[in-house]
């Protein structure tokens, strides 16, 4: 059953939201602040620009993966520790498709390359979306509301999925070559910008734009945001939050597939454990951003990626540890993350 909310009520809500919640710009300043702080440590301007762009690309990939996870948590209080499996499955499916389209990927034409990539991504997203649907149905549904069991069961799902990847694709490391036209870098003066990173930034921005548009400008987005704020109220108004949630779960899984494809192309190699490496960063990102917040997730992704890239250059041994420090520092400033959403 769907009831239409009287337009007046929606308008009133909007007005209230406008008055009640002034935009919180402070966390946004963290990104340029971190970039400026890192400059003297890096020292060299062209290296600094290269690192910053690399960080933006990496941040966008992390964001694509993390956005689904954080939304699912915000909406239904479910944290999927098996999210890493979707990353890996997406990457493997994309690799398989790219493997069959070798004629297209090795052609020097950018259009054909992008078409092959598009098809591979589409396949990856379909596969992980379907997998997400099954995962929600079989693994997550029986344990709603019970955090301990959720963590355990989704971790179990991760083990099984990772093992099944071994069964289907084999356990050895696979190459994941970039299509011809995306290899190499564009050189502007001293600055090298790898072409694939530009593509990753573009994809990430598009995903962010689409998510923001859907959340802010459509009815489904309104319901999702309302569900994050107060699920019972939305249910009481006659909407099936459950169905909405399954949808978000599937989209989140599909995004993990997209992110996995990008991530594997970025690293140009692929193992079944690929999800494990990035999921740690993803967790840090959603803690920093505030569980359930897409905007916080966006800023958090860029911050974490910047930290990883700058320290990776300045002091490579402590790259991940520096991100833990970043997380602790931000939690001391805002214990619920940059943009606290879910009040749980």
């Amino acid at each position: 059953m769907t009831t239409t909310v009287a337009p007046a009520a929606v308008d009133a809500d909007k007005d209230d939201a406008l008055k009640g919640a002034p935009r919180d710009w402070l966390p946004l300043l963290l990104v340029p602040a971190l970039a400026v702080l890192a400059y003297p440590l890096v020292g060299n301007p062209s290296t600094w620009v290269t690192l910053t762009i690399a960080a933006l690309a990496m941040g966008m990939m992390i964001f694509v993966i993390a956005s689904g996870l954080t939304l699912v948590f915000g909406l239904m209080d479910v944290l999927n520790f098996g999210h890493g499996a979707f990353i890996a499955v997406g990457a493997y499916v994309a690799m398989t498709v790219l493997g069959t389209l070798q004629g297209w990927t090795q052609a020097p034409s950018l259009a054909l390359n992008l078409a092959a990539l598009g098809l591979a991504t589409l396949a990856a997203m379909t596969a992980t979306g379907a997998l997400g649907w099954a995962f929600e149905r079989v693994i997550v549904r029986p344990v709603y509301g019970r955090h301990l069991e959720q963590i355990l069961v989704t971790t179990g799902g991760l083990i099984v999925a990772e093992q099944l990847i071994h069964v289907i694709w084999g356990g050895d490391q696979k190459p994941m070559p970039l299509p011809t036209a995306l290899r190499g870098a564009i050189t502007l003066g001293d600055i090298n910008i790898e072409k694939f990173r530009l593509l990753a930034v573009l994809v990430g921005l598009v995903v962010f734009g689409v998510i923001a548009l859907v959340l802010q400008r459509t009815k489904i987005g309104l319901l999702i945001r309302a569900g994050v704020e107060n699920r019972e109220m939305v249910e009481a108004l006659g909407y099936r939050v459950r169905r909405l949630f399954v949808g978000v779960f599937v989209v989140g899984s599909a995004l993990a597939g997209l992110g996995g494809t990008l991530w594997a192309l970025y690293r140009e190699t692929l193992t079944a454990a690929i999800g494990g490496d990035v999921i740690v960063l993803v967790f840090i990102v959603i803690i920093i951003g505030g569980l359930g917040s897409v905007g916080g997730c966006f800023i958090g992704s860029i911050l974490v990626a910047m930290m990883a890239n700058y320290t990776g250059y300045v002091a490579p041994k402590v790259a991940l540890a520096s991100n833990i420090l970043l997380m602790v520092a931000i939690l001391m400033w805002r214990p619920q993350g940059l943009y606290p959403v879910a009040k749980r």
């Binding site: 944290l79 963590i151 967790f283 997380m327």
Partner: peptide
Amino acid sequence: KAIFYAMI
């Protein structure tokens, strides 16, 4: 919460 602790 438990979930936060697990992630950290």
